[in-house]
Each structure stands twice: as structure tokens, then as C-alpha cells.
Design a protein around this nucleic acid. Structure first.
Lengths: 111, 111
DNA sequence: TATGATGCCTACCGATTCTAGGTATCACCA
DNA sequence: TGGTGATACCTAGAATCGGTAGGCATCATA
């Protein structure tokens, strides 16, 4: 893995997954690709992180899943954002913004 | 605890501590106060998070510690950023910036 | 035929933060 | 004097969560 690929901070993965799905239904493997692509290759979600996360998120009711066949003729499990999930995305984005702002404030401080 | 106080994400605490110490030597309790103050009360580091973190950071050589008496006449353990610690702060800030940028990119995406 | 990409999954590890407790000193006020 | 709250340190344990490393199957392509 390239050095410039940052490890995620704990707590950001859910938001990224929800965001990826907010752009449209997608299967797991595709979520990884979409996040990588949207972030200009800066974010690389590992499969071992994604699938457990998807399971968690589904349990919480933020996404719904169904098996389907896509264009290429292959089967895959498609995830879709629920209404609750969309709300959750907004909440998490707001939290993220707050945190980024707060940390920026601390970093502005000068000697 | 007020609702608007964000929980930290794992990985951000070290950076905040190092940043607080980059403004000058300080004892543990004071670090908590300084972070809270600089962030406009948005960030509240728990003691149970701070002290173990300080121990870790000291082990890594990013800070040095010594017991001393401060103005009020009370004893406290004062932490000081080492040269390595200052480098580490820069590294962590750069990582943070990269992550914030990457996530911003993902969030820019529209349907 | 073998390799790499696609696509799913699990088990376990490691790191880190929080909760909840403990101790002690000191200032202040009833 | 006694109690409370702030200051100041610490630890144990729980919980969370992302990563590593494995497994399995299909498909296209070299």
C-alpha cells in the first residue's frame, strides 16, 4: 500500500460508506472503489474493514441489503441507504464538521 | 457533559496534546484545560484518556516529564515537548490535513 | 493454465478512548 | 468545623473499531 494512503480514523468509515451510498445503490466491493475514486486514491478501505462495518450499519438500520445480479452478470449484495441512514449521514457529517472546526481552533493557537 | 462536546476520534488526541505542549510546558490537568479553552469548549479530554495517553507519548519520547511546584505552591508533573515530539506534531498535522482533504473530496461528490 | 480482478466472508489483533473508580491537597463558605 | 468543588494524579476494565490475514468462488485474459 502506498505510503500516502492514510489510515482512516476510527469513526470516519461509517460516514464514508453512507456518503458513498447516498450517491446511489451499490454493492460492497463497489463501495470501496467509489470511496477510493472520489478521494483521488487517498482513501483505501480494506475489505476486512468494510464488510464488518456494513454488517454493523445494516443492523442499525441505516442501510438495507439485497442480493441481485448486475450488468456484468455477476451476483452481488446491493446496499441502499434507508431514510434513517440518510439522517445518520447528516448527523455524522455535522459531527465531523464540528470536530474539524474545533481542531482547527486549537491549531490556530500561537505561542 | 454538554451535547455539543464532540467525542474525539481515535488518533486525534496525541496531536492535540502535542499541540498544547508546543505552546509551552504544562502539566496534565493544564493540558486538558488548555485544549478545552483553545477549542472554545468544544473539545473535552477526559482524565482517563489523557493520563494513559501522556504515558504512551512519554514512552515514545515525544515529551519529557518532571515533577515541579508551580506558582500556586502545588506539585504537578510538567510535560515538555521534545525535538522528536515537535517533528511528530508536524507529521500528525500533515496526516490530519490529508485526511480532512480526502474526506472533503468524497463529500463534494454529488448525485 | 495461471494470474489478477471482482466479489463475499470471518477470526483475531492492536490501538485507543471512555467510564468509573481511587487518592490527595487546597480554597472557600456555611 | 465540616462539606463541597476545583485542582492534580492515577488505574482497571469495557467497548469500539479498523487492519491483517486468511478463506472461498467466479470470470476474463494472457
Amino acid at each position: 500500500m502506498a505510503k500516502d494512503k492514510a489510515d482512516l480514523l476510527q469513526g470516519t468509515l461509517d460516514m464514508l460508506i453512507l456518503k458513498a451510498l447516498s450517491l446511489g445503490e451499490l454493492h460492497g466491493y463497489g463501495i470501496i472503489q467509489r470511496i477510493r475514486q472520489l478521494s483521488d486514491e487517498m482513501l483505501n478501505v480494506e475489505q476486512g474493514s468494510l464488510y464488518p462495518a456494513l454488517y454493523r450499519i445494516e443492523q442499525k438500520g441505516w442501510v438495507s441489503a439485497r442480493w441481485d445480479v448486475h450488468d456484468t452478470g455477476r451476483e452481488a449484495k446491493f446496499y441502499k441507504l434507508t431514510r434513517t441512514g440518510r439522517k445518520q449521514l447528516e448527523t455524522q457529517e455535522a459531527s465531523w464538521d464540528r470536530l474539524v472546526l474545533a481542531i482547527a481552533k486549537v491549531r490556530q493557537a500561537t505561542t
